[in-house]
Amino acid sequence: MQLSTHTDYALRLLIYLAIADGESPATVQDAAARYRVSAHHMAKVAQTLVQLGHVNSRRGRGGGLSLAQPADAIDVGALVRQTENLTLLECFGPNSTCPIDPACRLKGLLGRAQNAFLETLDGHTIADLVGNAAELRALLRPENDVLPNPE
């Protein structure tokens, strides 16, 4: 299964916020620059995470982003379910037009594979992904930039 860029950036942003040192507010622009990704796309991801209740956003001077709950309360499997379209094939939706749908074994196989994928993610939290926070912070330092932010 391939995750969308939106989910990828959501996980990256949550990791970034979980390891933020707290000295200055975390911003979309800074997170995008550290990961060398589009700030525009990261802003859309941040908006989704705010709507889902995973991130707090404060506007204005001194504003920024922060986790809305502890990192150990944000389940990776649940986040993927919230941000992904998990309809693998047309037949997974309610309006299947496939003539073999009632007897198809492929649909069942793919469904079990998808469930196994999600079950592997279940029970793992953002805190699990940042157990090496010092190493992650070092890799995301501004002086490690070698490419410009693609904006």
Rank of each mutant, 00 (worst) to 15 (best):
T125M: 09
A78T: 14
A73Q: 15
Y9V: 00
S38T: 05
R105F: 11
L118W: 11
G60D: 04
D145I: 09
R59G: 06
P94C: 07
C98L: 10
L109C: 03
N132K: 13
A46C: 12
A133W: 10
L65R: 01
R36A: 14
A32D: 00
I100P: 07
P70R: 14
H41D: 03
P150S: 03
A33T: 13
R61M: 13
Q82M: 10
G63A: 03
Y16D: 05
A134N: 08
D128W: 07
D128N: 15
E84Y: 07
I74W: 03
S66P: 04
T97V: 13
R141E: 13
L52R: 08
A134Y: 07
D8Q: 06
V45L: 04
S24A: 12
V45F: 00
F92Q: 02
V50P: 02
R59C: 04
L147C: 09
A33D: 15
A133F: 11
L13N: 04
I15T: 10
L49N: 02
R61F: 13
A26H: 00
L106W: 10
E151K: 10
N56K: 05
D30H: 11
S66F: 02
A116T: 11
A71C: 15
T83P: 02
T97D: 08
L136V: 13
A71T: 09
P102M: 09
A103H: 09
H54A: 09
F117C: 11
A134Q: 14
A127H: 08
A20H: 01
T125P: 07
C104M: 10
V76H: 00
A18M: 02
L129R: 09
P102L: 11
P148M: 12
G93K: 06
Q29E: 06
A31R: 03
A39V: 06
F117V: 10
M1N: 10
L136C: 08
T5E: 12
P99Y: 13
H124C: 11
C91V: 07
N95A: 12
N115G: 10
A10G: 14
L13C: 01
A33M: 14
V80G: 04
E23Y: 12
A71R: 09
T120R: 15
Q82A: 13
A113K: 00
G93V: 05
D8V: 05
Q51R: 15
D145M: 13
V45M: 01
A32G: 06
P142M: 05
N144A: 12
N115K: 15
V146P: 01
T125Y: 06
A31L: 03
A71I: 04
H6Q: 03
E90Y: 05
V45K: 04
S57Y: 01
C98Y: 02
N95G: 06
P148F: 14
D128P: 01
T7K: 03
M1F: 06
N132W: 14
A68T: 06
G53P: 04
D128K: 13
A39M: 00
C91Q: 01
V146R: 15
A31P: 00
T125Q: 08
G63F: 06
G111C: 02
E151T: 09
I100V: 11
A10R: 00
G111R: 03
